[in-house]
Write a protein that binds this DNA or RNA. Structure first.
Lengths: 334, 334
DNA sequence: CTGAAAGCGCTTACAG
DNA sequence: CTGAAAGCGCTTACAG
């Protein structure tokens, strides 16, 4: 077995209390003792047991992070930001893939509670009441990323989806487009669905472009739905000149479908995405998009959460700023 | 504070030993006692403390997973496979992003040791001797994914890189190509670098195509290097008709660079990638590639590791099979 | 400067 | 069928 603090104490001829003190730099021992103890620690290759420590301190230095889909480009980017910051602060991350499923989420929350995580980051999903209650029962802070909730006390890190969508559409309008379609995410999605539709509507209104419901279709943020909805759009409103997709993945679906159909982007139709995942820069043609600083958001979430854990203060919601990344899928209409 | 086993015991008028028994379904109590205890557990919303449990059982039901780059499409896919299987078996995953950096990796290994993880999955990186020693010292099983090592005892899950590369190149040859370039990964990379180059060489040799070193260039598996190396290739060997990239990301870089240069894929030049990440199906044109079953590999790794943890047996290495996914970036030369 | 002892929340022989 | 007690590997008053 691995050596314990007892082994170190015995070998160094001191008490375990003393070993613990030098381990934690608490002071209250002679230099000689310290030397001796450290020497033995090295000899034995001793490492403190964080589990035992956690039992006493009631701190595990572990954070649970829940994603609807860890392997999506979107989640990956956030995860990287979270992980990197947390690691710098000596916290570990346990990842949970909820599949956006209620039962699964609840099971994870229970698991995280049993494992005594110090806090929770909840990403890209609606914080249902039952989740909220479960987290309340755990008695640990939570922060939402790319999400928001009605429970006033839950801090979040997100962009202003309505404004960002409005900017995207105004960008298109600025380039001379009027026949602008939108491929939204889920119709019922109050997070990234309806707010972005509102932004679309607001932009049209601002520029006196009448809204025609045939130009608004619904996907589910994923690639395939982008392909499908774009084709549908082409049937119903063939005169469309630009498409605003509520996610990069769907925008990439549009690119893919267009390629298959022999439609040239941006020559025939312009496309703007939403998210700014790393991928958006790799596709052909490079995608113009409204970028969220995903990695940064992950970092801020981790930062906020850890502060909350360590000070006990509850944090505020934070709106981070989006930006339009101009690449090559939007053409100026003349 | 959250209720403990003591609170339950007191309220149910039994000893904590009894509560523990019903908690763990150990038998040795009357039905009436069981009812009562379960009732109190529900009333109090009691959840056992996995930390306390772990201290005794010396099992944390936690697995550490190390990736050089969590947010890459490649790692994401593996992670998803690992997470999903592990969750089904009631294990949690703590993710570590090593940046392929020695110090960082070692620090993580130490952290995982302190946190008493039950096992380790080490992905897509060379298991350096110092890592191996650190893991040995932890006294837990490890399995490598998309990696391999000289230490005979370390199980792995991977494809046969040499064979897969050979198949890719033979596929190109079968389509009539002779002027086949390869963009390899790192020159020094013994995992996914040299074995794939060997496969390339073997395929040429099998078909009596003389090897010309100008057709072999080196990237680093990432997107940008694909762009750069493709442009370089065009300078030195403009007569090239097909490119084999040792990763999908680099292949996508080729697509991107080709688009910029006005070169049509596959009309002017054919491209085949390696990995089969989800992304390869989203790009334009859809990428033909040698696919590794990444998610499946993650699953197998988790399965192997957990078996090893629970039985104490050391596992064997496993070669999984690759397959060529034909899409639209390779054209038949006539 | 140092150690004995209590305790964190559990599990597990042991005894009855 | 049930409970008292020891113990997992630590930390932290408390006493000296």
């Amino acid at each position: 077995m691995n050596p314990t603090i007892k082994d170190v104490a015995k070998r160094a001829n001191v008490s375990i209390a003393t070993v613990s003190r030098v381990l934690n730099n608490l002071g209250g021992y002679s230099d000689k003792t310290k030397q001796k103890v450290n020497e033995v620690i090295r000899e034995l290759g001793y490492q403190p047991n964080a589990i035992a420590r956690g039992l006493i301190n009631k701190r595990t230095h572990t954070i649970g992070v829940l994603f609807p889909n860890v392997s999506s480009a979107f989640s990956s980017d956030i995860l990287q930001g979270v992980e990197d910051y947390a690691h710098g602060r000596n916290y570990s991350i346990v990842v949970c893939n909820t599949d956006d499923d209620g039962k699964r989420t609840l099971k994870y929350l229970q698991l995280l509670r049993e494992k005594q995580v110090d806090g929770i980051i909840f990403s890209s999903s609606v914080l249902k009441e039952e989740y909220y209650e479960a987290i309340q029962a755990m008695n640990v802070p939570v922060v939402l990323v790319s999400s928001e909730s009605n429970y006033a006390t839950v801090p979040y890190v997100k962009v202003d989806d309505c404004l960002a969508a409005c900017d995207a559409v105004e960008y298109l309008i600025g380039k001379g487009h009027r026949k602008i379609a939108m491929i939204s995410g889920g119709k019922e999605d109050v997070l990234a669905g309806s707010p972005r539709v509102d932004g679309y509507l607001r932009a049209l209104q601002k520029h006196q472009i009448p809204f025609d419901s045939r130009y608004l279709v619904y996907g589910d943020f994923r690639f395939e739905s982008g392909c499908i909805q774009f084709e549908a759009l082409l049937q119903t409103v063939p005169d469309v000149t630009a498409v605003f997709a509520a996610s990069d993945e769907m925008a990439i679906g549009v690119l893919s479908a267009a390629y298959k159909l022999g439609i040239r982007i941006p020559d025939d139709i312009s496309v703007i995405g939403f998210d700014g995942v790393q991928l958006s820069n790799m596709v052909v043609p490079p995608l113009t998009t409204v970028s969220q600083p995903l990695q940064e958001m992950g970092k801020i979430a981790a930062e906020t959460l850890i502060r909350s854990i360590e000070t006990g203060e509850t944090a505020e919601g934070i709106i981070v700023s989006h930006s339009i990344v101009e690449r090559q899928t939007v053409r100026t209409l003349t």
